[in-house]
């Protein structure tokens, strides 16, 4: 269940044009799962390196590692 949910989240993120996603948006990929549980699944994706956090300081968003590269960010490209 968890693996399938992870796949669905990743597919959803890859299908979107925008690069940064709110947690609520990720949950649209797995609407049948409660948010508390969804949080654990999303965190597993982060721990596995399949998603990355992006934070403005006040809000946190998620992105694919291919989109969020520290070198690029530091060169001002993200």
């Amino acid at each position: 269940m968890s693996e399938e949910s992870k796949e669905r989240i990743l597919e959803y993120v890859k299908s979107q044009k925008k690069t940064k996603h709110y947690f609520n948006d990720l949950c649209k990929a797995i609407p049948e799962i409660k948010m508390m549980q969804a949080k654990k699944i999303v965190n597993e994706l982060v721990n596995e390196g399949k998603l990355k956090y992006w934070s403005s300081g006040s809000t946190t968003m998620y992105m694919l590692p291919s989109e969020g590269d520290v070198d690029k960010e530091e060169k001002g490209m993200n």
């Binding site: 982060v46 721990n47 990355k52 956090y53 992006w54 934070s55 403005s56 300081g57 946190t60 992105m63 969020g68 520290v70 960010e73 001002g76 993200n78």
Partner: peptide, 13 residues
């Protein structure tokens, strides 16, 4: 410039 992906491993804040 505001915000970014930097952080420490395992933490989202």
């Amino acid at each position: 410039k505001h915000g970014g992906i930097v952080g420490v491993l395992g933490y989202g804040g």
